[in-house]
Amino acid sequence: MTREIERVAGIPVVQIATIVPIMLTVGTNRIVPGVAIPHPTGNPALGPEGDRAVRRELLLRSFKAMTTDITEQTIFEK
């Protein structure tokens, strides 16, 4: 889905998910590793504030991913 959206729309699509090898297999170009399978963009164990902080950091990293010029599949680590 990620790859087809990127191909058809011609825009960067950043995928946030947890199992990186699957994203590499399906052809995602800009990869941001998520927190956990059932809560990729948050960490409820850290309480409401910690949870939001995690989300904010992931989104800022996603913005960095979409504004970075890349030539191949790239994993954007913290």
Partner: peptide, 20 residues
């Protein structure tokens, strides 16, 4: 992906974040 891509293109969207 293709259908969503078409719509985003028409709407002039610049980027997307997809969570899985």
């Amino acid at each position: 992906g293709r259908e969503i891509g078409e719509e985003l293109k028409k709407a002039g969207v610049d980027a997307a974040i997809l969570t899985s």
